[in-house]
Design a protein around this nucleic acid. Structure first.
Length: 131
RNA sequence: GAAGUCGGUUAGGCAACCGCCGCGUGCUUCGGCACGGGGAGGAAAGUCCGGGCUCCGCAGAGCAGGAUGCCGGUUAACGACCGGGCACCGCAAGGUGACGGAAAGUGCAACAGAGAAUAGACCGCCGAUGGCUCCCUCGGGCGACCGAGGGAGAUCAGGCAAGGGUGAAACGGCGAGGUAAGAGCUCACCGCGGACGUGGUAACACGGACGGCACGGCAAACCCCAUCCGGAGCAAGGCCAAAUAGGGAAGCAUCAGGCGUGGCUCGCGCCGCUUCCGGGUAGGCUGCUUGAGCGUACUGGCAACAGUGCGCCUAGAGGAAUGGUUGCCCGCGACAGAACCCGGCUUAUCGACCGGCUUCCCAC
């Protein structure tokens, strides 16, 4: 049977992004950084940590955008939104890992389409080695 | 119609799908789910002022420090705003202004220039007065020469500060008299100071007896005077409260062991167990949005604003929501994201629309 219809209530659609899939605590962020694994792209670092069996399933995301790299709050919010949006769309296909998307290089012209493409690429790499 | 000026409004729209965060109602296997409705700004920004709120401090006063600075008003308050005065800019509408005090004191003024605040004399003007030189006349002497008077000199002593020149600024301006040349030296007018009068709440304006040219500028130099200001901030503050370590109290156990009680024995204390208490970290809840609120009508006021009636509830996150994709339309969309809340200021900003006023042109 369909696993979603088993409970009868859990009807969250495939692209939903409820709070349980976000990193919210300082020590959760620290443990991801402490795992010392990351994928690189032109502007981003995608840190990740493979979760143990008892920690639940599904990927979780945190986004870090330093004020040092983007001075204006508007731009920081934009980058965070891009990160969350693409994570939301790909979440179901991602393995059980804690991810932290971190902006590492100051994007000179802030091209949202290019940045979105980059994030999609990084998350895609996260999916493929599992296959 | 064109150019300008001042003020206000707005900040792409619609639809579909996929998401996020509160709220209300219902359901729930307490994990959530369904439905309804709401979800950034004019600057949310800079954090430059002011206030509320919270905690700490506080008899009162003063010092230090800071801020403000024409007058009157508005306000919870202000360094804001409104109205007025003055100065400057603009043909005008209008704009700009840290705009108190320089006879309380101490200071400062580059360069240029003769001289820069106890003024000064480079060029220049004069040389009346006293010399000098020359000439003329008269008198005296044999004569060199002497005396008296008159005249001349791009001259000395000296007088002057009008003119030139320097400068951001040169110790009133301009005209006349006056003089050797000049000078408030004298006079008229202007400017300055000003008893007093008139208008105005006042700043101030107008008139002005009289004075006499004395008293230059800079206070965004120190300073003086007047007024105001206690400190820290929502990571304020309040409540609940794990794990671990430690503290206190009561009870139990003291069989054995260890440590301490200066060496030994006894004894006592601690290390043990149970319960309770308070502090407190992670974490959670709260503060957290109904407010000096918004809209509207009327009243008072030139206005800022105030009062009254009626209506409305309009984000509340917390690794931090308010978004993404697609389609259509238009003039292709700027600056930019709430973090306790208000009142301002400043800075950023593609445009669109509305209104008042000014000047010019055309038509009547």
């Amino acid at each position: 049977m369909n696993p979603e219809s088993r409970t009868g209530e859990r009807k969250a659609s495939a692209a939903a992004f409820p709070k349980q899939y976000r990193l919210t605590r300082t020590d959760e962020f620290s443990s991801v950084f402490g795992f010392r694994r990351a994928l690189k792209s032109r502007h981003f670092l995608l840190h990740y940590r493979i979760r143990a069996a008892g920690e639940g399933d599904g990927a979780r995301l945190g986004v870090v955008v330093a004020k040092r790299l983007l001075k204006r709050a508007f731009d920081r919010n934009l980058v965070k939104r891009l990160g969350r949006e693409h994570f939301r769309l790909l979440r179901q296909r991602l393995p059980a890992r804690d991810l932290v998307l971190r902006l590492a290089v100051k994007p000179k012209p802030l091209d949202r389409r290019a940045l979105a493409e980059e994030i999609r690429g990084l998350l895609g790499k996260m999916i493929s080695p599992e296959r």
